[in-house]
């Protein structure tokens, strides 16, 4: 069977097929860049010669669009106020209930409890920091505000997760939905929050509810993205193996994809929470209470000291929430490792 190879074959790979010979001028990249920029300048000068410099846009499309949006939101407010009133009522009740619980718990228990969680989830250093920092917040007289802010954040995050998980699942399952959702999520994250604070007030009135609404809009995108990513990242080998035993789509989602996406979803919750904390002061602009209100009041009265204390209290909450949720996500990630030791 051994056929003698022709002698010229040495086993080395042959030279790659040579690139087709270039025609015309041979230029290096600096010469090419100079030529391109020069071309632009010439074209610009020529265009300015034809239309004149400082040419104006025919700007008459903006006002009608703005009018249409104004009318639409007014119509919605007028005709569907009962829907938004109901939503506002439910959210407000939940918020007040949560706040009253946080304030009802004696503060040493609360501080100790958070310290315990930080110790179990992170480390004793983190526990020590949490307790000292929370005590400091209490001693500066910001305890009730801090609890109100915590309640606001919890409500916003709970609503965000309730919205994000189903949307994330849909985006993971369908490329079309993903493509439709993507620009909206980009918009929600980059749109200045003042833009949706106005309709938020029109729909929900002044107070905590429009602040929560605005917070959810700003903070929900990472939770949606990371839920979708987590589901899409489940290795196809595992999905295929699960399917080969006759799983339904529902079983696949609930027993394989969601459990394996949990670390990613947790990372999303962490980011959502951090972004919600960043909205605390903005929320105060539409009437939300808590630390945001304290900071805003200090701003209006030119009291940098009070503003700093309120700001530091927000930072304390953010650090504790961040470290604890991250540690939790990491723990879940460890549990899902597929490689052998």
């Amino acid at each position: 069977m051994a056929i003698a190879a022709p002698p010229k074959e040495t086993g080395r790979p042959g030279a790659p097929p040579s690139a087709p010979p270039r025609k015309g001028l041979q230029l290096n990249r600096w010469q090419r860049a100079a030529l391109t920029i020069g071309g632009f300048i010439v074209a610009m000068l020529a265009a300015a010669g034809i239309w004149g410099s400082q040419m104006e846009f025919p700007a008459d499309v903006g006002p009608p669009i703005a009018d249409w949006v104004n009318d639409t939101i007014r119509t919605i407010t007028r005709n569907f106020s009962f829907i938004f009133d109901t939503i506002a009522d439910v959210v407000l009740r939940f918020l007040l209930w949560l706040e009253s619980i946080f304030l009802w718990i004696p503060w040493p228990v609360m501080v100790g409890g958070i310290g315990y969680v930080a110790w179990r989830m992170v480390s004793w250093r983190m526990a020590l920091f949490s307790m000292l920092a929370l005590a400091a917040v209490g001693f500066t007289g910001l305890w009730p505000s801090a609890m109100e802010t915590t309640a606001l954040i919890v409500v916003a995050v709970v609503i965000s997760i309730a919205v994000a998980i189903p949307l994330g699942i849909l985006a993971a399952r369908s490329n079309t939905i993903d493509a439709i959702l993507r620009p909206f999520l980009d918009g929600m994250q980059t749109m200045p929050s003042f833009v949706y604070l106005v309709p938020a007030i029109m729909l929900f009135g002044i107070g905590n509810v429009p602040a929560i609404f605005a917070t959810v809009i700003y903070a929900v995108p990472p939770a949606i993205r990371l839920t979708s990513l987590g589901i899409r990242q489940v290795t196809p080998q595992v999905v295929e193996a699960a399917q080969s035993f006759g799983t339904t789509r529902r079983q696949l989602l609930l027993k394989v994809q969601l459990p394996m996406a949990i670390p990613s979803i947790m990372a999303g919750v962490n980011q959502t929470t951090m972004m919600a904390l960043a909205m605390v002061v903005v929320g105060a602009l539409v009437g939300a209470g808590g630390l945001g209100e304290d900071v805003l009041r200090a701003l209006q009265r030119f009291q940098p000291g009070e503003a700093l204390l309120g700001g530091l209290a927000i930072v304390v909450l953010a650090i504790i929430v961040d470290r604890v949720t991250q540690a939790w996500a990491r723990e879940r990630q460890e549990a899902l490792r597929t490689d052998a030791h």
């Binding site: 595992v238 295929e240 193996a241 699960a242 006759g246 549990a335 490792r337 597929t338």
Partner: peptide, 22 residues
Amino acid sequence: ERIEFRRKKTGMVFQYFGLLPH
């Protein structure tokens, strides 16, 4: 019917195991 077929008639083993890590 396909799901039933996979459940009852066949069992498959994969090169990269495809076990559920959780």
